[in-house]
């Protein structure tokens, strides 16, 4: 700290903080009124500020548009840091390896001459030099496996390389995180516990799901759970299942008129002025067309069966019979398909 002699009393000046401290001042007699105190403090303060200014304005300055600029010396009063010192990043696996092997980084040009296309191209990235996509023909090799798509393999290999690099990067970041030297913009977040073996990680069953299952189990007896003994503290099942209600058809008042009301509602909707808005005309048309087509095909099918019976007999008909036993319309379709095939042959 710079000590300055002034009135035989040293003043500590810290130019870095523009701070002055007079440790030897004490009031001979504490001023009685507030005004006096303030006056004395300001007087003493002026002295101190003047002391700072004395050394500040004598520093070498450079002229600027806004005023003289002064380079402040580093502060002598030490204050604690806000955050810890940044920690050095540990070397990555590759950096370690390169150091061991003595591999040095070389500067490379951003663009490279591409002989394939005869142009300058980027070394990496989109439209890069020696891009796999620019090689339209891959020479066959002795080691090639038959039945394997070389293009797909090339793409797959590239994907695997990228994935491996991503894995390496994560590993290096983890190592850095351990020392606390993760780059400020990177965050590592746990996604899930590591999967061991082939088993998928078990999902935690939520309360709602559990309630649903329990409800279903409780109502799956012959009586719908009506005569089952309840456990102490057991609540009624949450999901009771849907019961369809049929309204009485017999006319009357109250519930008897409900059925009529329901039908009236539907009818009113259909007959009303804007009924075309309710009706999806497009859908209706398609449905109609499909039905028509089906009819037409059925007709044709029956005709075709009689004409090309000889050829279709060659095919095993087992499957068709099976299907036909199950549903009628489906079999008709299948039959028509097979018949067509038979024709073509």
């Amino acid at each position: 700290m710079a000590m300055e002699m002034e009135n035989q009393k040293p003043i500590q000046v810290d130019l870095g903080h523009l701070l002055a401290f007079n440790p030897f001042h004490n009031f001979p007699s504490l001023p009685t009124s507030r005004d006096e105190l303030v006056k004395e403090c300001l007087e003493e303060g002026t002295k101190l500020v003047q002391a700072v200014a004395d050394s500040l304005f004598n520093l070498p300055s450079t002229e600027d548009v806004d005023g003289p600029l002064v380079k402040l010396p580093p502060p002598t009063t030490k204050l604690p840091r806000e955050k810890h010192l940044p920690k050095p990043k540990p070397p990555t696996k590759w950096e370690e390896f390169a150091k061991k092997k003595g591999i040095k980084k070389r500067k490379k040009d951003k663009v490279v001459w591409d002989e394939q296309t005869g142009t300058w191209k980027r070394r990496f990235g989109y439209d890069r030099v020696n891009d796999d996509k620019d090689v339209p023909i891959i020479d066959a090799k002795m080691t090639d496996e038959p039945g394997e798509d070389p293009y797909a393999k090339r793409k797959d290999d590239k994907k695997k390389r990228v994935e491996k690099q991503e894995k390496n990067r994560l590993q290096n970041l983890k190592q850095a995180a351990k020392v606390g030297a993760l780059p400020s913009h990177v965050q590592l977040a746990a996604t899930a516990l590591p999967i061991t073996g082939t088993q998928a990680p078990q999902k935690k069953v939520t309360k709602d799901e559990l309630g649903n299952v329990a409800g279903m189990a409780a109502t799956s007896t012959a009586s719908g759970g009506k005569f089952d003994r309840k456990l102490p503290g057991e609540k009624p099942a949450k999901k009771q299942g849907k019961h369809r209600k049929f309204l009485p058809v017999v006319e009357g008042s109250g519930i008897g008129s409900r059925e009529k009301e329901q039908n009236d509602n539907v009818l009113n909707k259909l007959i009303s002025k804007h009924s075309h808005e309710i009706l999806n005309v497009g859908k209706a048309v398609t449905m109609y067309n499909v039905k028509k087509e089906k009819k037409y095909r059925n007709k044709k099918n029956q005709e075709g069966k009689s004409s090309s019976s000889s050829s279709s007999k060659l095919k095993p008909k087992k499957q068709i019979n099976k299907k036909s036993a199950k549903k009628g319309s489906g079999s008709a379709k299948k039959g028509s398909g097979s018949a067509k095939k038979g024709k073509a042959k």
């Binding site: 870095g16 903080h17 523009l18 701070l19 009031f27 504490l30 105190l37 403090c41 300001l42 003493e44 303060g45 101190l48 500020v49 200014a53 500040l56 304005f57 300055s61 600027d64 806004d66 005023g67 003289p68 600029l69 002064v70 380079k71 402040l72 502060p75 009063t77 204050l79 604690p80």
Partner: peptide
Amino acid sequence: LDLLKGEVVENLNLAGLDHAYVCTAIS
């Protein structure tokens, strides 16, 4: 000092100096 000192700067414009804090220990 930490509260009042303001930004830590290397270069200071002398024309911009315009205020001071005075702290006095009375007792």
